[in-house]
Amino acid sequence: MIQTYDDLKAAVGRWLHRTDLAAVAEDFITLFQMRANRNLRVRQMETNLSQMVSGQTVALPADWLEFIGQPTLGGKPQSFVTRDQFKRLDGLVHVFEQGYFSIFGSSLRLNVDVSAGVTLDFDYYAKIPALSDTNPTNWLLQDGADVYLYGSLLEAAPYLNNDARIATWQGLLTTAMNDLQAASDTAKTSGGTLEIR
């Protein structure tokens, strides 16, 4: 059973029939976590940030991947514009009017006058907490140990010059990730059906 970081590293060695990969197995896991953060968007990654802001530039959380829906300022939804559009906007709008935002690097920029202070609120997808010796488990290892295992094995194949196994591990990983995504989508609707209103 794979329940911890050490369990996962040991499983990688067993599946590859190698006893000399203990150190490099950590790299395979890290590389897979990077891949998963780029490709996976499930309910377990959803979180919220709510904070008082009084400036137009707000640092995005370190674990931010992308927004879910629109950010709000004082409860009013803000509309996304491109960087070029943002640069062309003339002046700040009042906090109670329709505002705009854009992403510049790792910051959210607002064209709303928030100098008096207003609550910024948004939902977002957060990075998967990285496994390590000091963080031996996370939600993905608990809910999808197969995803972690197949992803790590896929990352191991090029290192081992075993190109013949890439398609096998990729196929198993794709199936496991699709299953995890389907379970997440079903859980979000609690088994109900969507209705057009």
Rank of each mutant, 00 (worst) to 15 (best):
D6Q: 11
A10D: 07
A11H: 02
A11M: 08
R14Y: 03
L16G: 08
D20H: 09
L21F: 01
A23N: 07
A23D: 08
E26M: 01
D27G: 04
D27L: 02
T30F: 00
Q33V: 04
M34G: 13
V42E: 02
R43G: 13
E46R: 10
E46I: 11
Q56D: 12
D63A: 03
W64E: 04
L65C: 15
Q70G: 10
L73I: 07
Q78V: 05
T82K: 01
T82R: 01
Q85P: 06
F86C: 00
G91C: 00
H94I: 04
E97D: 05
Q98F: 10
S106R: 15
S107V: 05
L110H: 05
N111D: 10
S115D: 10
A116V: 05
G117K: 11
I128A: 05
S132W: 00
T134Y: 03
T134W: 06
N138W: 00
L140E: 05
L140W: 01
Y150I: 13
G151T: 06
L154R: 14
E155F: 06
A156H: 07
L160K: 11
D163R: 15
A164H: 15
Q170T: 15
Q170Y: 14
T174H: 02
L180W: 01
A182L: 09
S184I: 00
S190C: 14
G192V: 05
L194R: 15
I196P: 09
R197K: 11
